[in-house]
Amino acid sequence: MTRLFLPLLASLTLLVAGCGSSDPSGGQPDARAPLAGAKIGGPFRLTDGRGRTVTDRDFAGRYRVMYFGYTFCPDVCPTDMQAIAAGLKLLDKRTPAKAKAIVPIFVTVDPERDTAAVVGRFAAAFDPRIVGLTGSPTQIDAVKKAYAIWSAKGDPAPGGGYLVNHSRQVYLMDPDNKPLALVPADEGPEAVAKTLDQWVR
């Protein structure tokens, strides 16, 4: 089962809990985003589901939902991806202009098995808007470091294969690739839609 291991991310979770809450009556959210100024994100160079080289600059001007996982994950990753996709569909109905401004991105932490074709099929199975990205182990390590993601390959299973333990946070990045907030995919589609609606302008 995946767990959040980084002390930094524990503090970020507390930050989100204590800041940026919206007015229950539906008023304007606080001006400062929970992750504003955090050292998260940065340039990357990866490969999409069609085998094309993709960099962070390809998403300039759009908000990004950044999720890190792996396609062979038996439980948490598919659940989170489903929540993200369903949350975007809710936003489509409520504020389509905001939904259109967002690109959801799935980055594998298991490049050994998650080839371009594999991440492409996995991402598209949840929503065709989701961009699946993979890369060399060196490239993946670099993007994990930039986004404060922890992962470790588990022991081989008796029947073959292996699990990958990894941190679970989902980031909402602004059009300049600066962090805004954590997206609570573990709380379901409604929580995802509410968070995106709050911070996407």
Rank of each mutant, 00 (worst) to 15 (best):
G87M: 04
Y70D: 03
L180G: 09
L8R: 12
F59M: 01
L196K: 06
F5G: 00
M81H: 06
L9M: 12
G135N: 09
P104T: 09
D155P: 01
Q169T: 15
T71W: 10
S167W: 11
D176Y: 13
V200H: 11
A148K: 14
I102H: 04
V183R: 06
R113Q: 09
Y171S: 12
P29M: 13
K98H: 02
D114Y: 10
Q139R: 03
G132E: 06
A86L: 10
R52H: 08
P96Q: 04
F68T: 03
I84G: 01
F106I: 08
D80G: 05
T134P: 02
M66E: 08
P96T: 05
R64F: 02
L172S: 00
V118I: 15
L12R: 10
A191H: 11
S151K: 09
A146L: 11
M1E: 06
R32L: 11
G37E: 03
M81L: 13
D23W: 12
R50W: 02
V109D: 02
A86R: 13
G20Q: 09
T55W: 06
V143S: 03
F126G: 02
P184I: 13
A123E: 06
V54E: 00
A17Y: 08
Q198T: 15
A116P: 07
P24Y: 15
I140V: 15
K178F: 12
I102C: 03
V119R: 06
D56N: 10
P7Y: 07
L12I: 08
F44K: 00
P96A: 04
V118M: 09
S151P: 04
D114M: 09
V119T: 08
A193E: 15
K194S: 12
T138Y: 03
V164M: 15
A86T: 08
G51V: 01
P29W: 11
R201T: 12
V65A: 09
P158D: 02
G69I: 11
W150K: 03
L35G: 01
L15K: 13
V16S: 06
P184K: 13
R121K: 14
G61M: 06
T13P: 00
F72W: 09
V131C: 02
